[in-house]
Amino acid sequence: MHPRYELTQAGDRYFDGLVDKFSRSLYQAPRGELRLAMLDYLLPQMLNLQQQTVLDIGGGLGQQAAWFAKRGHRVTMTEPSGEMLDHAKNWHRVANELPDNAIDYLQAPLQTVGQFAPGPWPLIACHAVLEWLGEPRLAMQSLADLLAPGGQLSLMVFNRDALRLSNAIKGNLQKALSDQLEGQGRGQRLTPISPIAHDQVVQWSEENGLVVESVAGIRVFQDYLRQPAVAPHERDTLLALEKRYCRQDPHWRLGRYLLYTLSKPETRE
């Protein structure tokens, strides 16, 4: 019998007790490998990277923090789960050739990061975090407050529209029709409690004075394949397909994740 997990008082889901599941099912599996490959491909295109300091919010197992650190950025990685943060520290130390003191660590949820690392930050990464919060709209305000004028926010969210299509393909027609797509967040299944639509990101950005500079879909095709791409040449072809169409309309709109670059305009005297 699987353990039962409880949401925080704020209605958020943390991932203590799920380090092995995350590592095994998300990052040692084809879908996780493709997600990281697409981020490696897209982030240099979508961000103005100048080895500026980076705030990595909800950094999980530490892959994104390591990616920035290897490229010369000084990174502060935050994560509310102590177990996830410990795993990231150990993995950074053992498996990565990183500059000394390249990454600082802070155990804190997004809502309290500003108390300990207020910035303002020229570059913030917040990947696959908002969909695990009870109030993702409020979180956008926190992110905007942390971002420096002229700064960039790399935001990745779990796409509600893709989740609806996936349920329909699986035959869950009533679930798709009723639009009751949210996970409960109390078991080991990793259906987000607050899947997010593109229009919501646009609205919340406008509410907080942020500008949507660019958007891309991640895993546009992979999750809908009738047969998974297993052979190396099939996986190479899939990756090429994902790269070709990840920023083209209408394909990006059905990526399992949506990746945004948001900017905060410079203040004028």
Results as ranks from 00 to 15, higher is better:
R13H: 03
A216C: 06
D100P: 12
R253A: 14
A148H: 10
Y260P: 00
A162Q: 10
G185S: 12
A117T: 09
Q184N: 13
M46S: 03
L110M: 08
G32E: 11
L163S: 09
R74E: 06
Y105A: 04
M84E: 08
R219K: 14
W67S: 05
M84C: 12
G72M: 02
G11T: 05
F15T: 11
A125E: 03
S25K: 13
L49T: 06
T237A: 15
T8Y: 07
Q203N: 13
L254V: 15
E182G: 02
Q222S: 13
T8E: 04
A10T: 09
F116A: 11
Q203P: 02
R256S: 03
E213Q: 15
S23N: 09
W91K: 12
E6T: 12
I103T: 03
Q174T: 14
D12F: 06
A37D: 14
K170E: 13
G62I: 07
A37Q: 13
A144W: 06
G151R: 09
L98K: 04
Q52T: 09
E33M: 12
S263I: 14
R24T: 13
W121K: 03
G72N: 02
P195F: 00
K243A: 05
T76S: 00
M38Y: 00
N101T: 10
L155R: 00
G151A: 10
R74Y: 05
F68N: 01
P30V: 02
L43T: 06
L163P: 05
Q107W: 06
A102I: 08
A66P: 02
W132M: 02
G187L: 13
Q203T: 15
V215M: 11
L153S: 02
A102W: 08
I196W: 01
T237I: 05
W121L: 05
L165K: 08
L106W: 10
Q141T: 05
I169N: 05
Y27P: 00
R219T: 05
L138F: 03
V113F: 08
R160M: 01
M140L: 10
L18I: 04
